[in-house]
Design a protein around this nucleic acid. Sequence first.
DNA 1: GCAATCCAAGTGGTCTGACCACCCCTAATG
DNA 2: CATTAGGGGTGGTCAGACCACTTGGATTGC
Lengths: 200, 200
Amino acid sequence: MSKSSKPKVYQGVLEEVRMYIRDNHLSPGDKLPSERELSDKLQAGRSSIREALRALELLGLIETRHGEGTFLRSYQSLQSVELLSSFILLEDQTRNELHQVKRMIEKEAVKMALPLIQEDTLTKLEAIVKSSAPSEKKHIDFFTCVLQQANNKLLLKIWMLLEEFSHSIDSVYESQVFYDKLLEIIAEKDNNALESLYEQ
Amino acid sequence: MSKSSKPKVYQGVLEEVRMYIRDNHLSPGDKLPSERELSDKLQAGRSSIREALRALELLGLIETRHGEGTFLRSYQSLQSVELLSSFILLEDQTRNELHQVKRMIEKEAVKMALPLIQEDTLTKLEAIVKSSAPSEKKHIDFFTCVLQQANNKLLLKIWMLLEEFSHSIDSVYESQVFYDKLLEIIAEKDNNALESLYEQ
DNA sequence: GCAATCCAAGTGGTCTGACCACCCCTAATG
DNA sequence: CATTAGGGGTGGTCAGACCACTTGGATTGC
């Protein structure tokens, strides 16, 4: 007759830990009680405690240091994004969609970076384009640089993940002419030309 | 002399499980090997297996049914959203990045969908915009529809993920005027106007 | 023959206790 | 006084034991 399943211990632990953090006003960097202590206080087996802590760790909410303890951690790592993305990509990585999304991000990254690009970055990009490296490395170097300028770590991370996956699936990169034009567009900060370049 | 810490078993298990899913072409709903079987195959204690599975469960990537087994699950919602939001307040920087990326995807999704949008979809969007639903639901409905038309499941998933994060943290949505204009742009399939609308 | 029932096997859920590896601090050592 | 050895605390891992729940086939009763 029951509809909802029995709550699991580790979920209760998550709740308790959260309250502990709130009630003790813990800030990033502060230490949490040890696993054995939590096990004691919360009346739960150490393994259940660990299941909860491991989950929090994977989410990037805490950090454990062997021999030292478990510490609260500021959430900026974007760690969970990485994991989630990789599983999302597992499901149906149709080449076309992947390629389309990646290309879109690259285009928009350039657009974001445009107002922020300085002379030195430009020379750096130029060097990359003119180098004799394989087109794959060239591509990665180029857009890594652009994305850094775009000043959005989240976007950078997403792009790197897509890049990695696309690398293991197919390897379609742009032509030399493409990069030349792109460089020109960046130098002149021409938004419309950028759009047209990516139209094709 | 080693600098990087020893990799933990449960992290290896995560990797293995991911590969297992890929190599066996598992789809959402399919069953994973039992904990004991994994423990056997991967040469790891059952508790380590469980730490990995619990983490995946918290992320909403798998579902475990007592007495039945563990199943792959299509990404629906983070079990952990409340955790994330109540635990840590995202840094401003990250928050902005999130918002920026999400907005960018929405814009590009419209662009992708433009050539594919039919009369009936347009009426549907119109209904959403004119509805009296809270702006949050309106936003989600609107872009879910757009993203479906854009015909790129990957982008849809990425967007849903971001939307969920953003939802638990801040709730800045667009104004009514914004949607009206957007609708008009879609009706007229005006790419340039779209860019300008999103400039601000 | 067919339906209802029961039970054993398989699975997740949890706890306990035992080691190991690692970090830190302190007391003994030189 | 500096160095070192050791002990205690902490996370990391494993093995084994139960329990609770689901399922499906064997058994039973009609």
